[in-house]
Design a binder for these strands. Sequence first.
RNA 1: GGCCCCAUGGUCUAGCGGUUUAGGACGCCUGGUUCUCAGCCAGGAGGACGGGGGUUCGAAUCCCCCUGGGGUCACCA
Length: 486
Amino acid sequence: MVRVRYAPSPTGSPHVGNIRTALFNWVFARHHGGKFIVRIEDTDQNRYVPGSEEDILFSLRWLGIDWDEGPEVGGPHAPYHQSQRLEIYRKVAHELVEQGKAYKCFCTPEELDQMRAEQKRMGAAATMYDRRCRKLTPAEVKAREADGLPYVIRFAMPLEGTVSYEDLIHGHTEFRNALTDDFVMLKSDGFPTYHLANVVDDHLMQITHVIRGDEWISSMPRHLNLYKALGWETPQFAHLPLLLGADKQKLSKRHGAVQFVEFIREGYLPEAMFNFLALCGWNPGDDREILTREEIIREFSLERVSDNPFVFHHEKLLWMNGHYLRELPKERLIELTIPYLQEAGLLPKELTPEQRTYAERVIPLEQEKMKLLSDVVALTDFFFTDQLKIDEKAVRKWYSEPHIPQMLEELIRRFEALEPFNTEQIEQVIRGVAEWLGVKAAEVIHPVRVALSGRTTGPSLFEMIEVLGKRRVLQRLRNAQKWIPR
RNA sequence: GGCCCCAUGGUCUAGCGGUUUAGGACGCCUGGUUCUCAGCCAGGAGGACGGGGGUUCGAAUCCCCCUGGGGUCACCA
């Protein structure tokens, strides 16, 4: 039985790369009919950010990623918060001390800083704990404990030899033990470090595959030796390519939106995010790029995960979101976009039935143009407000044309009398007026569009007029009469 | 700097020794559709296998070196 886990630490709102890792784990579990476990690695009291766990779980649910064991749902290996499992780690750490595979270290942060500074001054390639406390005699340790000195527990790394494993993505990888220092397993506050807690829980929770980002590869000698010291079987490891910014540096805040909730806020759709994230390092092996969640689950395999870093460019995601937006049923598009109009102040918090019907007619008009749900605001604002942003250049271009004064008058006259006020009738009026004036239809259409929306682009004019309604149309046409230079 | 990872057009990616004059997608350009924009359809440009050695009848595909980029070197994860 495949058992994988997503083990975020609540140190901030989750990053896209982080959610990508969750998605790969989930898809892998679902592909194999295995279990997907969420475990909160809240072992750093200093970096804990309230609310981030909520953001993490919200993001997963928003994407449609459910978990078989974890926070809020529980499971046979509860608790799933590491902060509630402290005794377990403590016990393991002390057992290793008793077996001589780990030791208490009484070095203070100041001493360690000094040691590192010294090493740098000596021109050391890398700073590394010099294992001074590893040499402490039992009596010395006892004395310090009796003095009440705080200590950490460090793992006693083998001084020689190598350790290796077969990465499911990178293949055979080997490390020399001597190059890794005696890392801290248990901090002086009694909390474990990632290395300890992660290994212990992965073992206890019977994780079969550890799928995580490439930045963890360098910790493999620690984890592998820990498993060995504990006499535990190691799970399989798969290290996912890093997500990079446009400058090829690890994706971070300075690359624009990277927090997953920011993407949600901007108006990306879950299906687009799911599809795109799945393609961040994986592909189905053919030319398909638009894939449903079911297809992704069916065809996913770690063998098809690329091992080179993925530069995260928003353009393609935007394109993909536009694609999914165009496929969206109208009802859902309306549901999803109304909140953006409300937030922009174009619609009130509570809609009257009339306002709702009006919005339902407006929004689909611009569906094919949206790349983000939030685009609805800029695309349709002129339907909801009379405070038009006027394209002055377009006004200058059209409103000095000789046919305009007559055109406006005639349109107003005919529209006033028009019944029913629908698209076909409206088109007839527009074309009729053009003919009557002896100008091309476009020479009526364009200036009218400017009069009604303030701009030169927008939905099909005839439909737009119908939706705007006679009252607004007449009012705006009359207003446009003021634009005629005298 | 040590260790580790990576290396196909601007970006993502197919390719796992010959079927490749290296395919697809995003972006870009042109044309068509059309009341504009978008969309859609049809084309196109960019001039990608980082460089050098091998192995082989044959290399983008295997090996080595170099170069470049990245990750990591905390009582953070």
